[in-house]
Amino acid sequence: MKSTHFALTSAALLLALYASSALAQDAKGIVIYNAQHESLTNEWAEAFTKETGIKVTIRKGSDTEFGNQIVAEGKLSPADVFLTENSPAMALVDNAGLFAPVDADTLAQVPEEFRPANGHWTGIAARSTVFAYDKTKLTADKLPKSLLDLAGPSWKGRWAASPSGADFQAIVGALLELKGEAATVEWLKGMKANFTAYRGNSTAMKAVNAGEVDGAVIYHYYYYGDQAKTGENSKNVSLHLFKNQDPGAFVSISGGGVLASSKHPKEAQAFLKWITGKTGQGILRTGTSFEYAVGTGDESNPELTPLKDLQAPKVEASKLDSKKVSELMTAAGLL
């Protein structure tokens, strides 16, 4: 018995050691906590490594998961860079004082409107809220004028969203910032009564396409991404832009930052600079992500409605309160 025990234990330990070397990241490279779309970050990382020789290890997760995780990990966080889809999680980490200031030449590449005033992180891309609707069912006159309309009784059982996703939570964050807590609580209550929950924006859009619901509150690029592929999940879908500084016209900023605890700050800063630079932003224009480029003078994909035409409401990205949003949504029974 002891010999099997011993043999098995030592085999397991050896294997564990071997496994650590097989699985663990390269000590010289940087670790990215990536809440952005995997395909986009992969495109960035591959090109970056090719150009600089710096290895990149990516951990996949979601905005607030990583935001809270970095806070929990504190100074011992293994992450060097944090990339999000939306800004609230950046604010979360920044409020905990865990970001290192972004290099000045990086900040110089991004207009002020796309980054917080304190310079602790920067916008790396942007996405616009849209109402994706079933064009075989709804005509222009039947579309909601404002995001707030969707809480009304006429929309009962007709629309979809992905409440567990950071994307939608950012939209609620903007609503909270623009209209205040009382209005937001009221709207969430209406939403709970009216909407159907899907997990993921693409799934919500797919439901619209399949005629399960009339429309869905999502971000714009899911539609363009699908159209660029086969279009099979969006052939019946059209995008409605709320514009008019409506909360539903909210443009969400995807953020990037370098952790103060990073053991490879130089490489991490280099990465951030690279993705906000010409090549990195160029990937947004030419790649399959269809997110808006935010670098000064960088064009977005020509198929998109230009950022300036969206008439987005002015929301201070660093003020979006993810904790409050998740509390309100939990209280409303959405989480």
Binding site: S62, T64, E65, Q69, A72, S164, A166, L335
Partner: peptide, 15 residues
């Protein structure tokens, strides 16, 4: 699924 949702929005939050 709800625990994983919570984890994805709050990491190891009390909820």
């Amino acid at each position: 699924t709800a625990i994983v949702d919570q984890f994805q929005s709050t990491f190891n939050g009390p909820a």
